[in-house]
Design a protein around this nucleic acid. Structure first.
Length: 600
RNA sequence: GGGGGUGUAGUUCAGUUGGUUAGAACGUCUGCCUGUCACGCAGAAGGUCGCGAGUUCGAGUCCCGUCACUCCCGCCA
């Protein structure tokens, strides 16, 4: 690297952002500051593209404008930090660069200050092609300079800004809630923070501000929101980070419909103001049961059809034992029609079957519809009537490929949902520019956990059942039939928000605790303060919590949540830039009364 | 906790059946070049093939282990 003294800012003042420069400024003297994005040194005349937070412009260093300046410009390399004073000039017609936003002008340098240099770069800033993700994360501050990521982080800012604006205009107060709070063993694993003053006791970081936002309703604030940081110590995914951000909001004196409306207007506003995209509202609604039946998932991607069909009743008496025995054991037979895929090769279909097996399926039965009839090695087991019904129900047409899964309902749903998404991509049925929103409603309040032989809440334990289902809380054989006033907002198969109308009546809340096996004593111990608050005039209330990271991911077209978070964790929940988590000074542990027993 | 993928120069990648001195592009360095915009031209430096052990006359390549990143299942709204 070339060694030299840097220039200090001295009396230099930035007088323009690059975005503000235009042909109208021709001849005006400006000072711009930023990074050398690319350089083209012709020996005499030197060009650089200078980048600041707003954009990029070509700067011209001509020896005629100062030999010393020109000699200095010769030293410039990628990512050097400079201040350039010079004149805006319009480019002659034949020199306009159509690919550059500021390609019609250039900046004629008169004075150059090199404010800082850069070592050889571990990740290139000026190339679209990005480096391995671990390198990008290690040098995140360089990665973030790339125009692509700058754009995503700026979009994130704009989205959050518009959320604040919209909600503030709709009588919501932004109120912060504690980061250090009481641990609740339900749901996700807590991140714990030891207390120094009370050795052996711990705070937890919030999984969500759920209890606090309900307390704010009880406090009479009527409408609350918060850009809330949430923490869950669970394993990561492409769309899941251990710390993430939710737009947490809650409203008093509302029912589901009110939450839907404000949320729809909010999303409409955000999309219009940041992407200039018109979202039609209201969003369609689909029942949980219907979503599971037709799409196999509670977060269906409705940008394409390929609905799953149920054949359980049709084939209950079939001679094909693989199907009928599953049905006798309480399982289901469901199928999907891969339109026009009859020409798939053996290996292509085997690949689909392999994926199905990875999700727990025992196999993937298949039939082709060709020459107006079903063909496969298993068709001989079915009567003509059954074959006719299969073809009817699946709306089979010439050259279709029918794929069947016979299994427990849960597995059949999972496998076919995965298959459906795969086929949607493979068959090019997905319009990548579309934002297809849908409310998934009428979730069951409880789910049976077969492994632990107990009921669990499907969402969280503070959800109010549908009013007509409240009596069923006293009938143990009907727990599974209780529908909760809870709802998810799904877009393009991504769960963007989740919310519910909360239980504001202590007696009902206690019954819910009882169903999931939390007894009186435990209630008092863990939620005593919360249950007590219900006794002093709790308004009916409910809310929703849109996941901001996922929203930005969707709106920016990012493949990973990491691309819309400035400093994300890796899949192993570490930060490779700061190398955390890390060991700490033994003195600190001692002060906390913590002893590390063994490290595997 | 389980399964899949990746790991070779600063970076992105190629590297045949196990066989001489591990290649290319970009970046870096030196020289030339006054209108380039992915500038061009000539040259140079740059490698613990993730790490460890093994098979072999010989390993980037094969076997085993291990680490890191990534995708998925479990887990988690």
């Amino acid at each position: 690297m070339y060694k030299f003294e840097y220039d200090l800012l001295g009396d230099s003042k930035r007088t323009a952002y690059i975005q503000d420069l235009s042909a109208g400024d021709e001849g005006k003297t400006k000072t711009i500051m930023g990074w050398v994005h690319t350089r083209r040194d012709m020996g005499n005349i030197i060009f650089i593209n200078l980048r600041d937070v707003t954009g990029m412009v070509q700067v011209v260093f001509n020896p005629e404008n100062g030999m010393q300046m020109h000699a200095k410009a010769h030293k410039l390399r990628n990512e050097y930090v400079v201040a350039v004073t010079g004149e805006v000039a319009t480019r002659p017609k034949d020199m306009i660069n159509e690919d550059m936003e500021k390609g019609d002008i250039e900046f004629i340098a008169k004075e150059l200050k090199i404010l800082n240099a850069s070592d050889e770069l571990p990740v290139q800033v000026n190339e679209k092609m990005s480096a391995d993700e671990d390198l990008r994360l290690k040098y995140r501050y360089l990665d973030l300079r790339r125009p692509d990521l700058q754009k995503k982080i700026k979009l994130r800012h704009n989205i959050i800004f518009e959320m604040r604006k919209f909600l503030s205009n709709h009588k919501f107060y932004e109120i912060e809630t504690p980061i250090l709070m009481r641990s609740t063993p339900e749901g996700a694993r807590d991140y714990l923070v030891p207390s120094r003053i009370y050795k052996g006791k711990f705070f937890a970081l919030p999984q969500s501000p759920q209890i606090y936002k309900q307390l704010l309703m009880i406090s009479g604030f009527d409408r609350y929101f918060q850009i809330a940081h949430c923490f869950r110590d669970e394993d990561l995914r492409a769309d899941r980070q251990p710390e993430f951000t939710q737009l947490d909001l809650e409203m008093s004196f509302v029912q589901e419909e009110d939450v839907f409306q404000i949320t729809e207007q909010l999303f409409q506003h955000i999309f219009k103001s940041t992407l200039d995209t018109d979202l039609p509202i209201p969003f369609p609604r689909i029942d949980y049961d219907e979503a599971m039946l037709k799409f196999g998932t509670d977060k269906p991607d409705l940008r394409f059809g390929l609905e799953i069909k149920d054949l359980t009743e049709t084939l209950a008496e079939s001679d094909f034992r693989v199907f009928s025995s599953v049905i006798k054991k309480g399982g289901v037979v469901r199928a999907i029609n891969a339109k026009g895929c009859a020409d798939y090769t053996r290996s292509e279909v085997d690949k689909l079957e392999h994926q199905a097996k990875e999700l727990g399926a025992k196999g993937l039965a298949r039939m082709r519809f060709q020459d107006e009839k079903l063909e496969s090695n298993i068709t001989k087991f079915f009567s003509e009537e059954e074959k006719g019904q299969i073809a009817d129900i699946l709306e089979a047409e010439e050259d279709d490929l029918l794929l069947f899964v016979a299994d427990k309902e849960k597995i059949a749903c999972k496998v076919l949902a995965d298959l459906r998404n795969n086929l949607g991509k493979k068959l090019n049925l997905i319009n990548e520019d579309e934002f297809n929103f849908v409310w998934v409603t009428n979730f069951p309040l409880f789910e049976w956990n077969g492994d632990e032989e107990k009921w669990e809440t499907a969402h969280h334990m503070f959800t109010l059942p549908k009013e007509e289902d409240i009596p069923k809380l006293d009938e143990p054989d009907k727990y599974g039939e209780i529908t909760g006033q809870l709802y998810d907002l799904v877009c393009n198969g991504v769960e963007l928000s989740s919310g519910s109308i909360r239980c504001h009546i202590p007696e009902i809340q206690k019954k819910i605790f009882n169903v999931i096996g939390i007894e009186e004593e435990e209630i008092n111990q863990r939620f005593g303060f919360f249950m007590k608050s219900f006794k002093y005039g709790t308004p009916p209330h409910g809310g929703i919590a849109p996941g901001i990271d996922r929203i930005v991911m969707l709106m920016s077209g990012a493949d990973s949540i990491r691309d819309v978070i400035a400093f994300p964790k890796t899949l192993q929940a570490t930060d490779i830039m700061s190398e955390s988590p890390s060991e700490v000074d033994p003195d600190m542990l001692e002060e906390l009364g913590i002893e590390i027993s063994e490290i595997e």
